Amino acid sequence: KRPMNAFMVWAKDERRKILQAFPDMHNSNISKILGSRWKSMSNQEKQPYYEEQARLSKIHLEKYPNYK
């Protein structure tokens, strides 16, 4: 399994927050909201998630050096 990208790292927690506020919301609607919110974020706001992506990718590479 591939490591999560920056959007997926961010969306994991955000999806949970949306589901708590709107438990009956369909997954497709949540995904649209998440995509819209991510697009509206500045690069500075996204930076911690890109850093986490890099950390996860490094761990993945160490654990699975032959993964293609």
Rank of each mutant, 00 (worst) to 15 (best):
K1C: 09
K1T: 11
R2T: 14
R2G: 12
R2H: 15
P3H: 11
P3N: 15
M4N: 11
M4I: 10
M4D: 13
M4T: 12
N5H: 04
N5S: 15
A6H: 00
A6D: 04
A6G: 07
F7M: 04
F7E: 03
F7R: 02
F7S: 01
M8K: 13
M8R: 10
M8T: 15
V9N: 05
V9P: 00
V9K: 02
W10G: 01
W10Q: 02
W10I: 00
A11W: 05
K12P: 04
K12H: 10
D13L: 02
D13E: 14
D13N: 05
D13A: 03
D13Q: 04
D13V: 04
E14Q: 07
E14M: 15
E14T: 09
R15A: 08
R15Q: 04
R16Y: 08
R16G: 09
K17E: 04
K17Y: 01
K17W: 00
I18T: 02
I18A: 00
I18R: 00
I18L: 12
L19I: 12
Q20A: 10
Q20S: 10
Q20L: 08
A21L: 08
A21T: 06
A21C: 08
F22T: 12
F22N: 15
F22S: 13
F22I: 06
F22K: 14
F22R: 11
P23N: 04
P23T: 01
D24M: 04
D24P: 02
D24A: 07
D24N: 09
D24L: 05
D24R: 05
M25R: 01
M25H: 02
M25C: 04
M25T: 07
M25W: 02
M25I: 07
H26L: 13
N27S: 14
N27W: 14
N27E: 15
N27K: 12
N27I: 10
S28V: 09
N29E: 15
N29D: 15
N29H: 13
N29C: 12
N29L: 13
N29G: 11
I30P: 02
I30G: 00
I30R: 00
S31P: 05
S31M: 15
S31Q: 15
S31L: 10
S31T: 12
S31C: 10
K32V: 09
K32F: 05
K32H: 08
K32N: 06
L34N: 01
L34C: 01
L34M: 02
L34D: 02
L34H: 01
G35N: 15
G35S: 14
G35W: 15
G35C: 11
S36A: 14
S36Y: 01
S36V: 11
R37G: 12
W38N: 00
W38I: 00
K39Y: 06
S40M: 06
S40I: 06
S40R: 10
S40P: 04
M41S: 03
M41N: 03
M41C: 05
M41H: 01
S42T: 11
S42C: 04
S42N: 07
S42V: 03
N43G: 08
N43L: 11
N43P: 15
N43M: 10
Q44F: 06
Q44N: 08
Q44W: 04
E45F: 01
E45P: 00
K46V: 01
K46F: 01
K46L: 04
K46H: 05
Q47A: 10
Q47D: 06
Q47E: 10
P48A: 07
Y49E: 01
Y49G: 02
Y49F: 11
Y50W: 10
Y50L: 08
Y50P: 02
Y50N: 04
E51Q: 09
E51L: 04
E51S: 04
E51P: 04
E51D: 13
E52S: 04
E52G: 02
E52Q: 06
E52L: 03
Q53A: 15
Q53E: 15
Q53T: 10
Q53I: 13
Q53Y: 14
Q53D: 06
Q53L: 11
A54E: 12
A54H: 09
R55K: 05
R55A: 09
L56S: 07
K58H: 07
I59H: 11
I59L: 11
I59Y: 11
H60R: 08
H60E: 13
H60I: 05
H60Q: 09
L61E: 15
L61W: 08
E62H: 06
E62L: 07
E62Q: 07
E62K: 09
E62W: 01
K63N: 12
K63R: 09
Y64R: 13
P65R: 09
P65A: 12
P65I: 10
N66C: 07
N66L: 09
N66Y: 07
Y67G: 14
Y67I: 12
Y67E: 15
K68S: 08
K68R: 07
K68C: 13
